[in-house]
Computed example of a mutant assay.
Amino acid sequence: MSRPQQVLASYRSLLRATRIAFDGDHRVFMAARQQVRQGYETGRTELTSEPEHYDEIDKRLEHASGVALLLRSNIVQGQLMHRKANEEPLSTGDHGIASQSDESVYKLRIHKHTELGDNDAVKGGKTSLAGTAKKIKWSNIDE
């Protein structure tokens, strides 16, 4: 794949990652997309397709790939949900996990790309959560 094709693919990958990570939060979604556009426009003006810029282009492509992975797998949005005092506690629903306090709950939007690790991986001194993701049925959670 040529470098211009790689740049375009990484740009699209970042835009998809922002859509996955910030779905439902229009303000943050648009700010993230603007940040991605701005970064690529800056790269377009600073770098050319000349061989002397290949190393810098490769570094930026690697960075963009890492950012896209981080957005897809590690960003979880929480939404504050108020409830009445006489209601039963909120359980996990079709769209995420709810954590409750006295009068309000946070509903987390976990999707199929979210990295799920367990505490045992952290307690055991592992530095990577690779292979610790729990298998759950995704048909009940929004994508």
Rank of each mutant, 00 (worst) to 15 (best):
E62S: 12
L61E: 09
P4T: 10
P4W: 00
R109W: 02
L80G: 09
M1C: 11
A21E: 00
L71C: 01
G96T: 04
K135A: 14
L14H: 03
S99V: 15
S49N: 13
E103K: 04
R16L: 15
E143C: 11
S101Q: 11
I97V: 05
L15N: 04
L15M: 09
A9M: 07
G131T: 08
L90H: 03
G39K: 03
A31V: 00
Q34G: 06
T127Q: 11
Q38C: 09
D55Y: 13
P4D: 03
V105D: 10
H95W: 10
R12V: 01
L15W: 01
L108P: 03
G24E: 02
Y106T: 05
E41F: 04
S139F: 02
A17I: 01
E50C: 15
G66E: 02
N74V: 08
G78S: 01
P89T: 05
K112P: 13
R60Q: 15
R27N: 06
A133N: 07
A68V: 02
G96K: 03
G93D: 04
S91R: 12
D142H: 12
R27S: 08
A98R: 12
Y106E: 09
S139K: 15
A68N: 01
V28H: 05
T132H: 15
R37N: 14
R19K: 10
S65N: 15
G124I: 02
E46G: 07
F22W: 00
Q35C: 09
H63T: 07
F22M: 04
P89G: 11
H82Y: 15
E87C: 09
N119P: 03
V7P: 09
Y40E: 04
A32R: 01
T48M: 05
V36P: 00
E52V: 08
R44I: 08
I20N: 08
T92Y: 06
H95C: 12
A64I: 01
T127P: 03
K126H: 13
H26G: 12
D118I: 14
Q34M: 08
H113P: 08
D118T: 07
